[in-house]
Amino acid sequence: MNIKKYLLNEKVIISLFSVLISLVIAAIVMIVIGKNPLVAYAALFYGAFGTKEAIIDNIMKASPLILTGLAVGFGFRAGLFNIGANGQVIIGALLSAYVGTLVGAYPFFLSIPLVMIAGMLGGAAWAAIAGWLKAYRGAHEVITTIMLNYVATFIANYVVNGPFQAPGGVPKSPSIAYSAQFPNIMSVGATSLSTIIFVSLAAIVVIYVIIQRTTIGYEVKAVGFNPYAAEYGGISIGKNVVLAMAISGALAGLAGTTQVVGVYGRYFGALSGSMGFDGITIALIGQNDPIGIALAAFLISSIRTGSNQMQIAGVPKDLVVIIQGIIIFLVAANRIIKTIRIRKRKEAEA
């Protein structure tokens, strides 16, 4: 890939601008509330990258966010807004945990693929329901995926408080077989760097290749850009809507799976957190580009990881939420930035 071309791409510039401007606005807010932004950002940076623990924590936070970001981004490519990544994360995690408890007798090279396939299939099937409803019943995916989020949450609550509960009365599943767990690369104190980061990195490459190089990617993009022309070209819209949702859901399911096999070793209630929704933010900032999404995931994980240190330095942690909000606003409203840039150019000419 031509790096220079990539960096000069308008989309990249928009995202970078948005991040910069949001940092500036947050700095102004800090000055208004009487804090020194330089101190705060230094703390933020130190909190995210200053120690080994911080870096590990950062990477482990980014890892599932890359996957949910890719999930939402892939949906966008087909013109679909998958708000249901959270539900797909839950179903994927649940299913992989279940299969994880069954594969104790198998060697890792069988049990790990089995668990991952289970998690991806779970997420894919869950998302495909919304895809099918959209393609053949005309139900909008925003509505159905939100509803499916609730259903997934309730199912998960039920099973980890009943049929699939570990002894002891806590809402969590039994632990998965040792052979299905991903090994750690290193541990520092209580934080461990798991090999699951490689799953996320591999997913970036796979999705990049699917989008850029495959017939499936071609069809999905065609449907997303212009469904009429796609249909004219013999591309089945229904099939591709279901397929794109399924691939999106598989990625979200994989995010849930990595938490089971690499972080907790089991399913438990709050595992999904907000990673499904964060995926939307990340896909927007990353502009649906796999590499952009990876960078955006690291951006979000960094400001989150660093925010504690910032709090210690006396600046409210909630500021990172503001920063995140402004970035999204600016990316979504990229016209604003385009206009500013055009003005600038004109002023330069004048």
Binding site: N226, A229, Y232
Partner: peptide, 17 residues
């Protein structure tokens, strides 16, 4: 509407179908 995908490069439009 039907004939062209405006956001596809020309070489992608040539193989539509």
């Amino acid at each position: 509407k039907h004939g062209l995908i405006k956001l596809f490069p020309v070489y992608y439009n040539f193989i539509l179908g």
